[in-house]
Design a protein around this nucleic acid. Sequence first.
DNA 1: TAGAGCATGCGAAAGCTTCTCATTTCCTGC
DNA 2: GCAGGAAATGAGAAGCTTTCGCATGCTCTA
Lengths: 146, 146
Amino acid sequence: MEDKEIRKAGLKVTAPRLKILELLETCGEHHVSAEEIYRLLLADGEEIGLATVYRVLTQFEAAGLVERHRFEDGYSVFELNRGGHHDHIVCVTCGKVKEFVDDTIEQRQREIAEDKGYEIGDHSLIIYGRCRDPGCPNHGKADNKD
Amino acid sequence: MEDKEIRKAGLKVTAPRLKILELLETCGEHHVSAEEIYRLLLADGEEIGLATVYRVLTQFEAAGLVERHRFEDGYSVFELNRGGHHDHIVCVTCGKVKEFVDDTIEQRQREIAEDKGYEIGDHSLIIYGRCRDPGCPNHGKADNKD
DNA sequence: TAGAGCATGCGAAAGCTTCTCATTTCCTGC
DNA sequence: GCAGGAAATGAGAAGCTTTCGCATGCTCTA
Ligand SMILES: [Mn+2]
Ligand SMILES: [Mn+2]
Ligand SMILES: [Zn+2]
Ligand SMILES: [Zn+2]
């Protein structure tokens, strides 16, 4: 099943590639680092190298199968490209990430690019804030001002 | 003159801090890396260490004097905090950066944060595209689709 | 002007990511 | 099914940005 997508990307169908793709499919909206993928596969009994995980993720990204994001700390996290574009809102306290799409913002971006003399390509919008989840260390603290 | 700002940040007024602040002032809307700052100061005859540049930039950032951004490649670039917030549009071909502010987008972000149950803090919006400058390698190429 | 403490420069180290290379695996054509 | 050539892998070394540790130097207050 995933064979098709890998072949379409011009890549050989190998165990590491299949396993990484499978794992990403189970992740849904969860964003995982290369290191996490590596450890999860190891724990699953797979024999795989960290370098391979990085290589494959980069290839998948180039092929449009996978998206890479860099949140505040600057390190890479990955997720399956599930078709539609979306942006992210991240809790700076607990790290929780939610996704959103806003047509107004998307439209304004196209207008801004046009206005500034750019042919628009991609974009990255990340909102940082504090979530109100009971489990978040931030929970309860009324309104911290720093 | 810059003494005031440094002191206000609770930091001692030292040659490295003054020089870095001065240099950033000459940069205007240009975004510079720590390494660039380091080399520019060295070329200017200053005796300074790269570790100090990083340390000072981090302190300035914490004090709100300086802003740090990470464009596509993930490395840090810095600019003086010139008061108002702004976002960036970057040419993926030549690297040219322009700044913009859009009230509609800013407002929608606040609504999204509210909607998703986050107390909004900062955000990072970077549009990637291709500029139409005569000097840009992209110039002339009608509309490349990859 | 002297003292306490903060800041600096240097080199070493951290942490993520990429590279190198010998070995293995995949895939095409027989 | 099998062999050959190309592509991919795993392991460790290396690369790069950024941070740390520490002996020395500088600032600032009194
Ligand atoms: Mn996502
Ligand atoms: Mn800027
Ligand atoms: Zn949270
Ligand atoms: Zn350009």
